[in-house]
Design a protein around this nucleic acid. Structure first.
Lengths: 195, 195
DNA sequence: GGCTGACAATTAGCCTCCTAACTGTTTTGG
DNA sequence: CCAAAACAGTTAGGAGGCTAATTGTCAGCC
């Protein structure tokens, strides 16, 4: 389920040592990078376990969240749709929101439909489009699953104080902005005054 | 290549709002969790792109690193083996170090061998075991690839000051410890005095 | 009205991961 | 000494990603 990542991260002294051989290796950058991926992987694995216990994958869960947002007004808030805006319904809109290809979304909807959580319905106006809807069974699943999922997340982050969470998010957002700036740019090229 | 993750994270006010409906939802915890996974995913994608440009996957790269560590003394430091300890050689040891199943390692070695980067050799003592070795071609690849890879990582983390990197790592380690404590424990159960 | 291009969804085929079952080898123990 | 357990590696089959190609539908333009 998670990325392949070495089980044990290199110790910092080792990175310092290695940096003498590799001038391009920035020890503190590498340490931060490895810890970021490793921690995320661990957190992901925990949350994935609670999903797997309910026979659902992360990808499918994302689709259910997006669909649920359209049914439950309160859910809309959670997903960022300001004021009860109906969520995505078509495979294309779902794929866009979930950041996967349409082909992948077809596959996800296939299995969700097979398991009875969602239902495809043809669009009466545009016959190219389908409309995907959560079934009562799918609704029931979400309502049964979410509280535990939220507790799981709270448990993972419970080790950080409010101030630490704030700091963590601030630093992560900085990195996100950097990756966004780097995207589509060659690896070694200078960033456009991103700081 | 990365996890499926919603393209846009929910705004913080939305989480606050949603927490009124879901008492189990801890807004700051959820925000930190989502940002962690999202940022890691972005960073992963950047590094994965430089790998993909050389026709290598993350999983295969990990195997090459582990094998390289056994050949290059300086590499050993990088990987955390204190003093030129020979790295893992058998598929089982590689699988253990890379945190994947043996079956997966078989597949990774298959493709690496097909591409000429590694070579399987039967163990003369224990005929159950194989010994996997980096070929000269594999060595050459690593030496050509690593500097750019290191620059790529340095670029991603370049947006953070040294102090910020230190803070980020400290917070991530705290979360890692929490996930380690949570592993094997039910989701809602109390942690053993973890903080 | 009827091409032509754009678009929605799917299909086909590949990759990497997984689990479970299998093959062959070594170790153990009556 | 040989059957059974343990172990290394592989194979088989599934899931979820991807890209590229296909099919069906709509929209624009002559």
């Amino acid at each position: 389920m998670p990325h392949l990542l070495l089980k044990d991260l290199p110790r910092y002294e080792c990175l310092l040592e290695a940096a003498r051989e590799f001038p391009d290796l920035d020890p503190s950058a590498a340490a931060a990078f490895l810890h970021l991926l490793h921690t995320s992987d661990e957190a992901f694995a925990i949350s994935d376990r609670s999903l797997a216990a309910h026979n659902i994958s992360h990808g499918r869960f994302g689709v259910l969240m997006l669909l649920w947002q359209g049914v439950q007004p309160r859910a809309a808030k959670l997903m960022g749709a300001g004021e009860c805006v109906p969520g995505p319904r078509t495979p294309a809109a779902l794929a866009d929101a979930a950041n996967v290809t349409r082909a992948t979304m077809t596959g996800l909807i296939d299995t969700l439909e097979r398991d009875g959580y969602v239902k495809r319905e043809p669009d009466p106006v545009d016959r190219r489009q389908m409309s995907v809807r959560l079934t009562p069974s799918g609704m029931k699943f979400m309502e049964a699953f979410l509280p535990g999922h939220f507790r799981s997340i709270a448990g993972i982050m419970g080790t950080l104080t409010e101030a630490e969470r704030k700091t963590l998010v601030r630093l992560l957002v900085k990195v996100q902005q950097q990756t966004a700036a780097l995207r589509g740019r060659p690896q070694g090229a200078p960033a456009p005054a991103a700081g």
